[in-house]
Design a protein around this nucleic acid. Structure first.
Lengths: 381, 381
DNA sequence: TTAGTTCTTGAATCCATGC
DNA sequence: TGCATGGATTCAAGAACTA
């Protein structure tokens, strides 16, 4: 009996990990069913070019959370995300990191994604294992779930850590591709991408989401395009529904996925089997679109462009309002945002405060939108 | 000889930390010259409302050892940012965090800012000390320094961790102010703000920047507006050029700064002395409904605003209920408070009766919360 | 067919007070 | 300390539905 039992020979093979002698050869484009630490123990030293890891976040959620309209939030309360303590989580983290480090080629890189619940512990463990952090990348979600109770800031991002095995490692970074992907401007450490929803979100037979934390393919697309070459081997030790495998296949990279839950493996197999590799020509360049950033009026106050206490007026000086420290306006009989106060004073259903309000200065009336334009220019946006 | 030698009595006093017996009283709006751990040891337990900490980022390893206990470094370069190892940095971090935790009020909050070089170690240490992370906030720099060599992604952000002393702490979060500051949309965990440059950037006599990591006032403005009230005490154990003090003074908060380097203290003193507090009227913020006085629905009946027998309906006129003399409602199959009846009829777990129910009058539907607002205004509340 | 409206949902550490 | 109760609280995207 070998190290792994091959239980399927279809398009996307699935191997069941049984014991742990090292394989002399890697099975590529394959899902290993089992615990990631054991599975990696069966892999040779320095055998993969990149590792993308989306480990449990250890969310530590409380009771159920209700939306304002009464609905229930479908939280990630799965058993695989529960740990007894930070110590238990650290022990688990350091164990899989040790194996990941061993199977990674010396010039390979490791990516880990997490949230504030776990990412600090993961980052500290990485450094303790000798990994050299190259960047921390912020995935700014275009459409995050709001904070329903108004108790904190909207948790609108997740963090990825990108690191090499050592300070001197000669890692792959496709600088030119990243710049091209970003309209010929250097790719920054913050990426704005939508969450995984719509047709991309995999559903089970009941129509429920197949996995609570499926990542968008766009995220993996950018990661893989940045740090690997076609033909490189990408390992994902927390494979889930196989986003890493699907994108690897699309981008003509080789891949290995490890997943403990059989139900996720089934979903991943079907998904990857139906994913088509991109045309080689299509892999050359990728279009991108940059939309104008939204600037809140409050930023004008914070940056000192319009100090609190400033009196604003409309073009015909019919109404006046005073700017408050929190970016709201106060006028005779109205208070609130620049838009709301403008609408109330005029008795109009709505109002664009940016064009309605002006600062009455030495040079006459200056529309506050003028300040916003200056801010955008100064910020290089 | 007292714990601190007062060496200056000007507008912004500077106290030199000498020994460490606890002070019975806090000196406010003051800079303490000395190592932050020693200085905090001279402060009482649970004495400050908020701490903003911008510790050394440990940007370079392999430099000379800086003793965690705080041995002074006289050099004019940035020796304060060098640590011999992660262990040394951790030891230093855990030492100042322990004092910060002791000095912080039980319902106070702590902010720490850092980059990928140090923030993961700081975050893990926070959690190990029992702090409860509320958010990690990404300061997305509008105009970061490019990566000149093209070897990584442009390092375009820094990370702040916001935490309370415990999971159950009742911390201050001015939700309504934050929402107002962001054009009436919940403030997110990613903040786009320019770096500190131009006239705000302090220069020394040679025209060089006075401090290598001066933070923009806009950043502190948002932090302080979010988590403190006017009059609250804000401590900054790594004061530098005193951005925290300047913004605190502007926003009419009290402040304490600790700084080891005399040259930075000089710059900070001049800066803060020339900062003007904002007008009190400009400090008024949007009152939150949670802090508004409670009004029982029965008062609406007692004052005659809504007479018994009035028929209430929801916005879509799907349900009807009749007002009783004691302030309860009676509907088909339900009776009780405005909230309970609304919840029962909808089959919802809960319901805000004030916003659910309406009076169907000559001017159309009027939300009963409208009556409550009128009552509050009339009562001068 | 289209345009407008309503409904659903996403890695979430998500209430405050009084008895 | 636990339980009952009042009543505060949501953004964007895509699908489903309606006129």
């Amino acid at each position: 009996m070998g190290a792994l039992n091959k239980i399927d020979m279809d398009d996307v093979p699935v191997l069941r990990t049984v014991a742990r002698p090292k394989l002399t050869m890697l099975s590529l484009d394959t899902i290993l069913l089992g615990d990631c630490i054991s599975a990696m123990q069966g892999m040779p030293d320095r055998s993969v070019d990149m590792i993308f890891a989306d480990p449990p976040y250890n969310l530590q959620l409380g009771g159920e959370l209700l939306r304002p309209e009464g609905g229930r939030v479908d939280a990630c309360d799965d058993e695989w995300d529960k740990f007894a303590s930070f110590e238990a989580y650290d022990k688990f983290t350091r164990a899989w990191l040790a194996e990941a480090r061993r199977v990674l080629k010396d010039d390979g890189t490791l990516w880990v994604i997490g949230s504030y619940h776990n990412i600090f512990r993961v980052g500290a463990a990485l450094q303790d294992h000798g990994f050299w952090i190259l960047n921390d990348i912020v995935w700014r979600k275009a459409n995050p779930m709001p904070n329903f109770k108004g108790t904190r800031f909207t948790n609108a991002h997740e963090t990825m850590i990108w690191c090499s095995k050592s300070e001197k490692a000669r890692y792959t970074f496709n600088y030119a591709s990243m710049k091209a992907l970003n309209d010929d401007i250097q790719m920054r450490s913050d990426w704005v991408l939508p969450i995984c929803s719509g047709g991309e979100r995999l559903k089970d037979d009941d129509g429920h989401k197949a996995h609570p934390t499926q990542k968008p393919e766009a995220l993996l697309y950018r990661v893989m395009l940045a740090c690997t070459q076609p033909g490189d081997i990408v390992l994902d030790p927390f494979f889930g529904t196989g986003t890493t495998g699907a994108v690897a296949r699309r981008l003509r990279r080789r891949w290995i996925g490890i997943e403990r839950e059989e139900k996720y493996v089934r979903v991943a197999r079907t998904r990857i089997a139906s994913t088509l590799p991109l045309d080689e020509s299509a892999m050359q360049t990728v279009p991108s679109k940059r939309s104008a950033p939204r600037v809140a009026f409050g930023v004008m106050i914070e940056t000192g462009a319009i100090p609190p206490g400033t009196i604003l007026t409309d073009l015909k000086r019919r109404w006046r309002a005073e700017v408050r420290g929190d970016g709201t306006l106060v006028a005779d009989g109205a208070r609130g945002s620049i838009h709301k106060v403008g609408a109330t004073l005029q008795g109009a259903p709505s109002c664009n405060g940016w064009t309605f309000w002006h600062v009455d200065g030495p040079d006459g009336l200056v529309q506050i939108d003028e300040y916003r334009q200056r801010h955008l220019v100064a910020a290089g946006l």
